[in-house]
Design a binder for these strands. Sequence first.
DNA 1: GTTAAACCTTTACGTTGCGTCAATGTCAAT
DNA 2: ATTGACATTGACGCAACGTAAAGGTTTAAC
Lengths: 252, 252
Amino acid sequence: MQKLSRLAGVSARTLRYYDEIGLLKPARINSSGYRIYGRKEVDTLQQILFYREFGIPLDEIKKILDAPDYNKAKALKEHREKLISKRQQLDLLIKNVEKTIAETEGRLTMTDKEKFEGFKKQLIQENEEKYGKEIREKYGEEAVKRSNEKFMNMTKDQYEQFCKLGEELMETLKRAFATGDPAGEEAQKAADLHRRWLTFTWPSYSEEAHAGLAQMYVDDERFTQYYDKDQPGLAKFLRDAVFIYTGKNKQQ
Amino acid sequence: MQKLSRLAGVSARTLRYYDEIGLLKPARINSSGYRIYGRKEVDTLQQILFYREFGIPLDEIKKILDAPDYNKAKALKEHREKLISKRQQLDLLIKNVEKTIAETEGRLTMTDKEKFEGFKKQLIQENEEKYGKEIREKYGEEAVKRSNEKFMNMTKDQYEQFCKLGEELMETLKRAFATGDPAGEEAQKAADLHRRWLTFTWPSYSEEAHAGLAQMYVDDERFTQYYDKDQPGLAKFLRDAVFIYTGKNKQQ
DNA sequence: GTTAAACCTTTACGTTGCGTCAATGTCAAT
DNA sequence: ATTGACATTGACGCAACGTAAAGGTTTAAC
């Protein structure tokens, strides 16, 4: 019965399985086919679980159970050997994986170390200086940390995509600005590119955060300066487009 | 085809399985249903094997294969984490097993330390003094070492059995001696008990060694003394019984 | 007394990565 | 035509259960 299963913390299925493989037979079976377990079976089950915790396969447990004590000790020692050799294999695997990781990173960072790695750090610092405080205040220390982590872990490929996306954004944005319509097709495409650009460095995307950042582009002059340097009004235009894109239609 | 399987060192079954799960589809299938693999597939297989060596499950490899490079590196790192946590679990298991082993041994040696452990050591010394040299000469240093090791590793239960068997042997031997017939039922029973008694401390049993030892009982006075102390002639009688038991019927 | 909830049963498929038959078909060489 | 090497699909097996499915039993509530 399930008293036993709950008592020992194993599933009923497990008991049935142990019965099936002959590891733990019930004391008797009543008229309606129910398995009835007695005190002795409880003890046996405890022993089974005891050995199972060590990861000893069930068929070996079966042997151990009806073996004298000295064989039990021997079995434990043998099992220890198996575990140890397993760990050695694991160690080897880990070593190899780490070597491979190191190599891949070596390829990525060594290829054009100054250009890529230098740029990266610089950009992070800029990122930190520019938006860090704001984002920190708005979304907490954790978010910034995760964002920087994500950026630090970017590979060269990702970084190149990121840059390309930034350029594309700028081009699209300028074309959209020429139309003058922040709800227009081009402007919305720019807003979408901006979202994709963001998700490269942001750990998670939300419309609120996106809209909030867009507003910051207008409020923070360092931002405004960056977007307006060629086309005055570009920051405001991007904000409007993003507001529409995110559904935050200016009512904030 | 099997060119590929041999080339890459995997079985044909493996290739079929990889096809089945969609991990590596052949380039095409010819008119009679044969799988044809091309250059590209060879490369892919190499990659698969590369990741497989790290113990990465096949469905993850599948994901990794059609993912960009930066995700491959990420996957490796994630896998490393898994391996490390696996190793931690293993370490825990090993620690527990070792603790248990230590406890069991503690119980065995502490229970009646002087009585059992003292006896054991004394017996080993006696054993060494008495037969050590002879056995060493006859069967080599290794055999003695293994024998002593086996004895040292005996548990209390085993030791008790060993003693009981020794007593039973003596009783049976004396009864057999009274019949005067070394080929008789009682004498052969004694010889068999002697064999069982030996296998407690001998790493392996052979009829030659058994017969050799029985002869030693007669040749070495320390042995003779032990067996003859109650019944003069007992050592000789045991030797004769063992010779018959082992089939070495005196012709040596 | 009926009915539902809780518990039991057997049967059987799914999991992972192939190994290992079995039964049968195809290709190249003798 | 035959033989041997190689191919195919299909199926079971492995460890230790989880997870239904389909149905019988017990117990408690109404």
